[in-house]
């Protein structure tokens, strides 16, 4: 299953709530302000690193670039909108709007 998160973890508990429901094999896609969770060296980084041990995490490149998010946490995969579509094709989807 693909879980999409578009909120910043610093102002909103959506990502934290999402991660509670993640199981083995769940793929997480961070879009919009959700990509702020991908920045290394934040209070949220260790939670992301922990998540990466059992789940794939993707971010949308356009959202990373627009926000100057750098460097991103090791192991997070950068993709584009076509990659987003491919993830949707491979997985059922839930958006944590």
């Amino acid at each position: 299953m693909l879980h999409i998160v578009n909120k910043s973890p610093f102002t909103n508990n959506t990502l934290t709530e999402c991660l509670r429901f993640v199981t083995q094999g769940t793929v997480i896609l961070l879009i919009e302000d959700g990509v702020l969770a991908a920045k290394s060296g934040t209070v949220y980084s260790s939670k992301m690193t922990e998540t990466l041990k059992k789940n794939e995490v993707y971010v949308i490149k356009a959202d990373i670039l627009a926000r100057g998010v750098s460097p991103i946490i090791d192991g997070i995969k950068v993709t584009d909108y076509e990659g987003f579509v491919d993830l949707v094709e491979k997985n059922k989807v839930h958006s944590w709007v």
Binding site: M1, R20, F21, V22, T23, K92, H94, S95, W96, V97
Partner: peptide, 17 residues
């Protein structure tokens, strides 16, 4: 429980948030 909701979500054809 969390795990039960995860399982229910995974068996859906679509979720509407």
């Amino acid at each position: 429980e969390t795990s039960e909701i995860s399982a229910l979500m995974e068996e859906q054809d679509a979720t509407v948030p």
